[in-house]
Design a protein around this nucleic acid. Sequence first.
DNA 1: TTGTACGCGTTATCAG
DNA 2: CTGATAACGCGTACAA
Lengths: 334, 334
Amino acid sequence: MITIKDLARAAGVSPATVSRALNDSPLLRAETKACIRRLAIEFGYEKNELARGLVTGTSGAIGLIVPDITNPFFADVARGVGEAARARGYGVLLCTTEGDPVLERSHMHLLRRKRVDGLVLTSATADDPHLQDLIRAALPFVLVSRLVRALDAPFVVGDDRHGARLAVEHLISLGHRKIGFIGGPKDVQPSQDRMEAYQEVLAEHGLPLHRRWAVFASFAQEAGRDWGRTLLSQNDRPTAIFAANDMIALGVMEAAEELGLTIPGDLSLVGFNDISYASLPRIQLTTVAQPTQEMGRIAAEHLLGAIERGRQRRLARILRPRLVVRRTTAPPAR
Amino acid sequence: MITIKDLARAAGVSPATVSRALNDSPLLRAETKACIRRLAIEFGYEKNELARGLVTGTSGAIGLIVPDITNPFFADVARGVGEAARARGYGVLLCTTEGDPVLERSHMHLLRRKRVDGLVLTSATADDPHLQDLIRAALPFVLVSRLVRALDAPFVVGDDRHGARLAVEHLISLGHRKIGFIGGPKDVQPSQDRMEAYQEVLAEHGLPLHRRWAVFASFAQEAGRDWGRTLLSQNDRPTAIFAANDMIALGVMEAAEELGLTIPGDLSLVGFNDISYASLPRIQLTTVAQPTQEMGRIAAEHLLGAIERGRQRRLARILRPRLVVRRTTAPPAR
DNA sequence: TTGTACGCGTTATCAG
DNA sequence: CTGATAACGCGTACAA
């Protein structure tokens, strides 16, 4: 592996000069610079960022922590993060927690050993213990689609309350009065907000709020299937279900098929996020769309700004969701 | 940020001893080791892997290059790679090329500057120029679902020919005689193999091979939609289509809906890969399943083995695909 | 405008 | 068993 010393020898200058040429230092004659650069290319020189990092105290990489990269929501975020990072020449270290706090912890350590310059977090719970560590260590981070109210940490989220309102009001305007809700985990903010807004809207319209029609579960298809079965097997079943994300909605779709219920004939269904699954032919899920990739991009750009500026700035970006009406919602059967 | 020197001072030993304690060197008294380790935890010490990498010539990270992380196929691979890497304490640098050779090139450079210890490549074309560079640089790599015949490079692939046979023979056994094929890019091996096997099977069964029913396209839903429209608008249209991957198949499904053709009534459809989309309710795509996540895991494990052993070994793993019959295939209408 | 010299945090090679 | 000491490759004050 060729180093600046090799280049220095070949060019008949000192290593320092080579370093300056490669970093485009202004106090260097244009010719020397050009000559050295030409040599670098000719030799196939690649700067050693480990060495550079050691002296500058930066690594040129950020960490991205997601629960599950095979969930299209997080894949979209990852894509946005990746684009922003590449645009600035940063690398992205991807970590998958599978919702396991132990794994999350071990990944945090890995990333800190690797001296990442910052973190994008998509899996923080409402009372995440790691965040305090990060703040103490002055390691910049941005939360995506997660909000930790106690902490005043930088975040990019969708307006979950507004999004949930859109969904429930859409169902009500179609004439539904018996509307169920299947939420994500109880301890994450989007899940909580969507539940609260759901309850609010029902109350505003004087609709009954049945405990057994509204549950917290998890952001997974299986959860949707299982709770869908439960909700739809009741004697007095809801005519519409608002699912806290699209994966849950797909699970409900499965459950409905099993039970012989047609959508939207017997059951209207609304999801959240508008992941790529939702617009598939035959699925055509009505859902609340969030600009997911954009969220990743914004988060990473803010993070990189904070890193290069050397200090954290506030970020409280709330993106407006919009309702995408497809073919899983219709007036209730009479 | 606290260093081994700090620990050394606190423990009243030399930095070298601390280093040995942390690396679990056998030639160190158990007590000293324990004492130092206790201190390290107490101080919240995190080893600086940049510094370590500088002296050992390793970075403890591997690069993963995928065309598109939002494609569930590559997300699955990424998951497998991530698991294997984590199990050995390695980090994964994720790079997304979006099929752009320029981006791919720039990512390769980024990864080499970061001194990754090895690469998992999922987007190599049959005549990729980068691979020669990697070999020359003695940087280990493994190809996933891509095979470069000219090179004798380590790879993990599915048996594409066999998989394609399964698909086409399934259609023939249902009674189809007019079978179309929509392939991926012309210059990648899986795409080529699937096309060849498709043609072989048709020939073996004495079925006509219409040029206009078999095309190379790209591994994307839009390609499936566009070519699906083309194939299905012909006067003498195929009664079945074998798509070179599931994304293409979904596109064909779209096209069929547009044209008012029902599946499997008017058209039978088989995909490839069994991505998560395929088993969704209502989609229920008949497809050739590959153990995608497993492929990523195997690739990463081999790679890490090669890295730690210090020399590349051969790897020519061909995983057996299997046909998953769901609801998009049936005998042709008569 | 360029060169010298030092240090970043760690590991490895010697001595002891 | 442990301690000095010298690298690893680069950036940067300071000197020239």
